[in-house]
Design a protein around this nucleic acid. Structure first.
Lengths: 345, 345
DNA sequence: TTGTACGCGTTATCAC
DNA sequence: GTGATAACGCGTACAA
């Protein structure tokens, strides 16, 4: 593999000139420029960005950490991130943690060793040492999909509390009184926890008692959803509606409901969270809380880029709006009046 | 940021010793080792993998190029790739091309400039200069999702011809005679082209005439699927069945069919390709050709890793089996006998 | 406009 | 077991 030295020798110029031809072509006379370009051609010279990164301490690489590569919602936000970053001349490198803190810490370590210039992360442990360390060192990073509305960490996400509230309110407005929540385990998802807070608050505002038996924590998998429904339907007083803390869980429930010959929404109403593309195709379509994933990705990238440009400043907290999408997976419990006005937004 | 030089000074040893503590701890006496580790601690030393890559000309980074990050089938295969690569001590960096050759060439260039050690790519242009260049230089790379069964390029994929044949045979076996194909544009998808070859061959074997008006090329998007169905139903003799060259297109068709009040499978039978997770949740479920995406990813990574280990050898061509999954989106055209035995496998 | 010389953090090759 | 030092490819003062 040839280097600028080879090119320089061939063109009978110095390496500095070759470097200038690459980086600031106008600073070199057309004659020598052509000479150098020709030389590059003949040696099949290939630029070494690694060496540049090494020399300048700037790699133009941003690390993106997501908990799951299979959940389409993360594909969307990642697309948003990439679109903005590549427009700003940055490259993206993606790491996935499968919702485990160990892999998150490891990924973070690898990224830093690779000298990424910044990190965008959907974390599984907001209070973890890994993030604390980044923050201590003033390393540029931003949280996505989070609900943090204050504190030292920059964060772009949605109001998960409000989303959880809205989802539950949709069910209470339809006359449901036994409303379960199938949540991603709070241990790895503060988002899920905030949605649960919203759920509880909404129950309270509607004078519905909170029944801990109706709240299940689960993996974010189809199997988790399926197992969850099994447990819920085995209760003495099974719920008439379930709020799932993401669409994946809701899919698991729908699948399991089919096995149990439960009809949705007749026997069970269902609300999800995320609005991944496919839930609009189901029959019935899934009522869900839409997250603007692509926009959130874009915004996260923008926040990171300006942090990179302007240096450390006060942390940014942006919560994007969510939206309830009604498609037909919710109806009043059998034998209940149709729709009750909802004044909790 | 402290370096091994700082550590060496602090521990009163040479940089070589520090390096040994990092890479081959047994080659250094326990006493000095501890001394060095302590020094690392106190200067908050962080290893610089970039510098190592620069010094050794080995980055342990593999570039993965996919045409779409949103299509779940690529998420699956990427997961397979990552699982194998990380087990072999490689890091993965993901690039996405949105099915455009320009972005593919650019991504390839960036990856090479970053000094990736190998590339796994689902290409949009098999005959393109970008791949040819890689091959000329003996750069280690493998194609995925491809159908190439010979030639100089290593390739792990599925038999798209057989898959296309099988999908079509499923329709002819059900008595369909006007079978359309909605294909990803051949210009960017040789997979789609091979599926089309299978489609044509199957028609011929069944003595069905080939009608070019029934074959549409499209983007791999929902909108492409929707527009496609519009055009097909506007024909003088609309088809009674459609083979879609991926599930995404089939989803678009299902959505559009709903708008047109066409019932699937009563008014229109449908077969897809890929078997992305969600199509099992639809009503009716989509009949489709299952690709073992995760396995294919794993296998691609294995092929690349052994190429990396053993140096250039003869190219590998592995075609994994596909499988027809029946879920209910196909039935005989109205007023036709039920199932005709199929002897084309 | 062009050239010289050094630094970036690590590994590898010798010596000792 | 340990130390000194030359690579690795590029950017960049600074000098010419």
């Amino acid at each position: 593999m040839s280097t600028i030295v080879d090119v320089a020798n061939l063109a009978r110029v110095s390496t500095a000139t070759v470097s200038r031809v690459i980086n600031t072509p106008d600073q070199v006379s057309p004659a020598t420029r052509d000479k150098v370009l020709k030389a590059m051609e003949t040696c099949q010279y290939r630029y070494n960005a690694l060496a540049k990164g090494f020399a300048t301490q700037k790699t133009r690489i941003i690390g993106v950490v997501v908990p799951s590569i299979t959940n389409p919602v993360f594909a969307e936000s990642t697309r948003g991130i990439q679109d903005v970053l590549s427009a700003c001349g940055y490259h993206t490198i993606l790491g996935n943690t499968d919702y485990t803190y160990a892999r998150e810490a490891e990924t973070l370590q690898v990224f830093r060793q690779m000298q990424v210039e910044g990190i965008i992360i959907s974390t599984t442990d907001l209070k973890g040492e890994a993030l604390a360390a980044l923050n201590r060192e003033d390393f540029p990073f931003v949280l996505t999909y989070s609900t943090v509305r204050s504190g030292p960490l920059s964060c772009v996400g949605v109001d998960n509390f409000a989303g959880g509230y809205r989802a539950t309110a949709h069910l209470t407005a339809n006359g449901h009184t036994r409303i379960a929540m199938l949540a991603g385990a709070f241990s790895f998802s503060d988002k899920s926890r905030h949605r649960w807070y919203g759920y509880r608050k909404c129950l309270r505002d509607n004078k519905l008692s909170y029944d801990a038996a109706l709240v299940l924590q689960s993996d974010y998998t189809l199997e988790g959803g399926m197992a969850g429904l099994d447990r819920l339907m085995a209760l003495d007083h099974p719920p008439t509606a379930v709020f799932c803390s993401n669409d994946y869980l809701a899919l698991g429930i729908m699948e399991k409901a089919r096995h149990l010959s439960l009809s949705i929404p007749r026997d069970l109403s269902l609300v999800g969270f995320d609005d991944i593309p496919m839930v609009g195709f189901l029959t019935p379509g899934l009522d869900t809380i839409h997250q603007p994933a692509y926009d959130m990705g874009q915004e996260s990238a923008r926040v990171l880029v300006s942090r990179l440009k302007d240096g450390p400043g006060r942390p940014v907290h942006k919560l994007l709006p969510t939206q309830l999408i009604k498609r037909g997976s919710v109806q009043p419990p059998t034998g209940t009046p149709r729709e009750i006005p909802c004044n909790h937004n």
